[in-house]
Design a protein around this nucleic acid. Structure first.
Lengths: 222, 222
DNA sequence: GCAAAAGTGTAACATGTGTGACACTCTTAT
DNA sequence: ATAAGAGTGTCACACATGTTACACTTTTGC
């Protein structure tokens, strides 16, 4: 087990013996789960830290009509719902169910808090995990908050533009990009055409030429 | 100072003497700042925990064209960039500048980490702050990912509907709600009218009646 | 090399949302 | 009590985007 945990973001930088020592000094459980088992429902309180040791879980968002929506997979040795253990509304944002047999390490919140203060490296790691989530979400919002497709494209290009360069390698199809930006594929193609007509960019199969950097930047100036 | 800090989310549940003790046992500084002073630029590394003691700061997002965009105000005794102290990309997401004279408490990251492990209540508080941010952002994304205003309204209402009830108290103006949902105010009003015409809801000044819960849910079934 | 699959350019059309405007109502402060 | 301010209902209009469709090109697998 401790070999698996060594690879976990929570225990980066610790030796297996150290992890062993820490875990064995906090009360914990190993829970077996079987395929299709529902481990937690959305809205339920998060009261324990969970780390997948073996097998695979998935988080499925369930809408009010009862359909399941997005899916996020959690594999060993990831933590489950790391950013939802603490906080004013510490409830599961999704249904948590197993998509294979497996087992997980469970530490109750109180004990987990003690564990965090027992080792500064673990504390640091956990803070990195949670902060990382917040930062990821923050960046995602930046994207979503651009209204027009033109803005999204401009932002995407400028993000991926290395200074001094004026060519951006594209390792993604327009279809994929459209999905990532959350827009319809033909709409993306249309907007690209417009931007080419406006002499802002030149979109080739595998790379994009920035023709008029200044105007491209101005696209984002509201 | 310790009286101010007592009200800070970071030190909830601690007595002034305890805060005094903790702070004086970690190395720290008090920094005076003056109006219009820029305290940090977006992209700069976050290396210290900062708590505003007096005066007011603002975070301004700067776009690629050099214009400043959104503004977030930070007042005593709030922490600055709490979710950005740790994490893989711990850099300021915004420019940080003063909009009045004032002063702040500064604790360098290393010392702050020690402070967190020195007192479990402070650790818990900080985890609550950061997790709270992540949860707030997560909810915001859920909202932004609904495409139509009708969906957003339905989601909002169903979220705030207590089981068994069919009336939702509104503690927010339509204007405020429109802002929160990221839509134009008249568009929100129009959509509400439509939903009323469809006999889904009845929107009064201070509360909303759910007329047809089933159909309201169906709005979200994609 | 060839066929199938995937990706791309483009068009016509429907539709949801933002904008700006205005009258009206409710709340707040003096 | 009254005036000023904030919030609300509604309209006409412009416009960006999604949808659906089809021809064409490129890539992939055999």
């Amino acid at each position: 087990m401790f070999e698996i945990l060594k690879a976990s973001p929570l225990f980066i930088g610790l030796r297996a013996e150290e992890i062993n020592f820490l875990i064995n000094n906090s009360s914990h459980q190993i829970k077996q789960f079987s395929n299709k088992e529902v481990l937690a429902y959305a809205g339920e309180r998060v009261e324990k830290a969970m780390i997948v040791l073996d097998g695979k879980l998935q988080g499925e968002m369930v809408d009010f009509a009862g359909n399941s929506l997005k899916i996020e997979e959690i594999e060993p040795p990831q933590m489950v719902a790391a950013a939802f253990l603490y906080g004013p509304q510490s409830v599961f944002p999704v249904n948590l169910s197993a998509i294979s047999d497996g087992k997980m390490l469970i530490i109750f919140k109180n004990d987990f808090t003690k564990l965090l203060s027992a080792d500064q490296r673990v504390l640091n790691n956990y803070l990195n995990i949670v902060s990382g989530k917040a930062q990821f979400l923050s960046r995602k919002i930046t994207f979503l908050s651009f209204k027009t497709i033109k803005e999204k494209i401009a932002y995407y290009l400028l993000q991926n533009l290395k200074t001094g360069n004026q060519i951006i390698a594209m390792n993604q199809s327009q279809k994929g990009l459209a999905e990532m930006l959350g827009v319809a594929r033909p709409s993306l193609a249309r907007t690209i055409s417009e931007m080419e007509a406006d002499q802002l960019i030149k979109w080739e199969r595998n790379h994009v030429d920035i023709v008029d950097l200044k105007s491209l930047r101005a696209t984002l100036g509201r």
